[in-house]
Amino acid sequence: MSRLPVTRGRARLAFQANVVVIFVFFYVPIVLLVLFSFSASRNAGEWGGFTFAWYEEFAGDRATKDALQASLKVAAVATAVSVVLGTMSALALERFRFHGRRVFDALMYLPLIVPDVTMAIMLLLFFSEATELLGISRGFGTIALAHIAFSISTVSVVVRARLGGSDDRLEEAARDLYASRWQAFRHVTLPIMMPGIIGGGLLAFTISLDDVVVTQLVTGPGWTTLPVHVFGLIRRGVTPLINAVSVVMLLGSMLLVVLALLVSRLSGQDSKYIH
């Protein structure tokens, strides 16, 4: 297909300026935050000489470290479960016809567009009745169950995008060549889905580590995740300690981005087989 016409002259300059302004807008706050986390000033937004003190304070801060641990635990469990359920759903929706398929398809999209606050209220009401029925207490269990509820759809959408771009005749060919259903799945379908599964899993992990409002409303006494803990700290006022914790969270996010980009690059290389 033919390219869009490139703008020239002064108009082009305006377009370029817009791009530069947007990237400055995106990245300057992040850079400043990293900078201030090494500032010796007691004021969170002021440069007062270089120091590691706030990171040392973070390392010695029991509550923050507990919250970080809790966050990682919740994210790991929520990701594992939603990857399994989301992948199964994606496979069913993309490769099979069954009763209720269309309803399921529509239902899958809803958690992606429902605002966080609404999701939080829905789950709060649900757990206000269900914790007694199910015999679980508010805390780790309810947070993980809630995070799975919004992560299944994420994983499913990413895996489906991958499956949808592939040719289902590949599986048929494998079956024609006397592969059992399991063998065709194991050696054809699963490798096709794998980048989607990993990508979806990374996204689910990120979303779990991002969530504040759902966790805040379904948690119980004594259980808090890192974002909820930090959110509470921020509401009491900005401190250099929060700067340091934020930068650690930032590094975590960056690590996940790099992994996600690597996965998409690797999957780009083998995509010649699945166009």
């Binding site: 199964m88 399921f104 009401l125 509820a149």
Partner: peptide, 26 residues
């Protein structure tokens, strides 16, 4: 068809339990 439904069932069930039921409750 049966296999497809079986495959979809865990995710389907989960969303009904933790999305549709809460939605009705709200």
């Amino acid at each position: 068809r049966r296999f497809g439904l079986l495959l979809a069932l865990p995710g389907y069930g989960y969303l009904i339990m933790l999305f549709v039921v809460p939605l009705v409750m709200v």
